[in-house]
Amino acid sequence: MIERPAGAIDGPPEESFVDMLRIVEELDTPDGYKAELIRGKIVVSPWSKLRYKKPMKLLRRQLEPHAPEGHDVDVAPFLFSFPGVGRAFGPALHVADEAAFEAEGRQADGAALSLVAESTSVSTKDVDWLDKLDTYGRVVPVYLVLDMQAEEITAFWDPSPKGYRSRTTVPFGEALRVPAPFDFELDTEGFVAQ
């Protein structure tokens, strides 16, 4: 079990969350930037560095044949909301039920996700390892963190009301078992920075 501070996931009241989510949706961010709702605040941050494209592309290609039926693997900039905890994230890569994209609006329900992957940067590392881990760990079956600074990948799975119950970490270059519903060995050889 991963420890986290008590009350770390408490969100704003529902009305405030809806108002803030509307603002995030209407925000005209500059090219190359995304807006997310983190800890009750709107956070605008740059998309990943260019060198992060290759690992995410390799990850995407390997996930596609193993995605659950009716789920789409994409890196498109979509916002997934978690209203119960007042969060809305735009993951680096997502696997989600295609039905989630038939709704109106600019954000999808976080419960549609079967896997999320984030690549860390110096500015977002804490959010990826703390707030997103806490939020995804209650709903999303699999969360992959590509720690670009440490050059390792961690798989979290088995979500619960208190967060993920299981995790495995390997350095880039070693195979990582991606658990159900994907259930395959991920080749991370190409993730190593050249």
Rank of each mutant, 00 (worst) to 15 (best):
L133N: 06
R61M: 14
P83D: 00
L37D: 02
L63E: 05
E14N: 02
L37P: 04
R60S: 09
S121T: 10
A112M: 03
D134C: 06
F89E: 00
W47F: 05
G11E: 04
P91N: 13
K54E: 11
E118N: 02
E14I: 01
R22Y: 00
P30S: 08
P65C: 12
G32N: 08
P5G: 07
K132I: 02
I38D: 01
V122C: 05
E26Y: 14
K34C: 09
K41H: 10
A117T: 07
F17T: 02
L130D: 13
I9D: 13
V18D: 15
D72W: 13
S121N: 03
A100G: 13
T124L: 00
V95Q: 12
V122D: 12
S123R: 07
L63I: 13
D74F: 12
A112P: 08
A108Y: 03
D19Y: 08
Y52A: 11
V75Q: 05
F17E: 00
L130R: 13
K54H: 12
A103R: 15
V95M: 05
D28E: 15
L58W: 09
D109E: 11
V85C: 10
P77T: 12
E98H: 04
D128H: 04
G90F: 00
H66M: 05
W129L: 15
I23L: 09
I38V: 14
V127H: 01
L115P: 03
F78V: 15
H66D: 06
P77Y: 07
G90H: 00
V73D: 00
A100T: 12
K125I: 12
A108C: 10
F17R: 05
D31M: 11
V43Q: 08
W129R: 15
G70F: 14
D31S: 12
E104S: 15
D72I: 12
E118P: 01
G40Y: 09
A96Q: 02
S119Q: 14
D131Q: 14
R60C: 04
A103I: 10
P5N: 06
G40H: 05
A96P: 01
P77F: 02
F82N: 02
A92V: 08
E98C: 04
P30H: 04
M20A: 12
R60H: 02
